[in-house]
């Protein structure tokens, strides 16, 4: 099963250390392969890797695209989008 969606990063620091930690820990809870990329780029990276996710250095106001492939792909993408929409549970 393949699923894809995108979301705007509103966290004022962007996809920084703490948000990246939360993002990757949530991604690891799913068995699907999950990839993300910065909206305007074509380079996809492993959403379960802290070095890759933080390494995208996505600032606030940029779009994040999430793609999952696997049995829980639908749920994975939705949950990760929710995390971003809730500003990584930081307020």
């Amino acid at each position: 099963m393949n699923f894809e969606d995108s979301v705007l990063i509103r966290h004022s620091l962007g996809l920084h250390a703490r948000p990246s930690i939360k993002f990757t820990s949530l991604a690891k809870k799913f068995s699907s392969d999950i990839r993300i990329k910065k909206g305007d780029q074509s380079h996809w990276v492993n959403a379960k890797s802290i070095i890759k996710v933080m390494g995208l250095k996505i600032p606030s106001g940029k779009e994040l695209q999430i793609q999952a492939d696997g049995i829980d792909a639908d749920n994975a993408v939705k949950s990760l989008i929710d995390l971003v929409l809730n500003n990584f549970d930081e307020e």
């Binding site: 509103r10 966290h11 004022s12 703490r18 606030s60 500003n87 990584f88 930081e90 307020e91």
Partner: peptide, 13 residues
């Protein structure tokens, strides 16, 4: 004042 919450605060906040 809102730096701690890391988010652009809305009107109520």
């Amino acid at each position: 004042m809102f730096f701690q919450t890391n988010v652009l605060p809305n009107e109520e906040t």
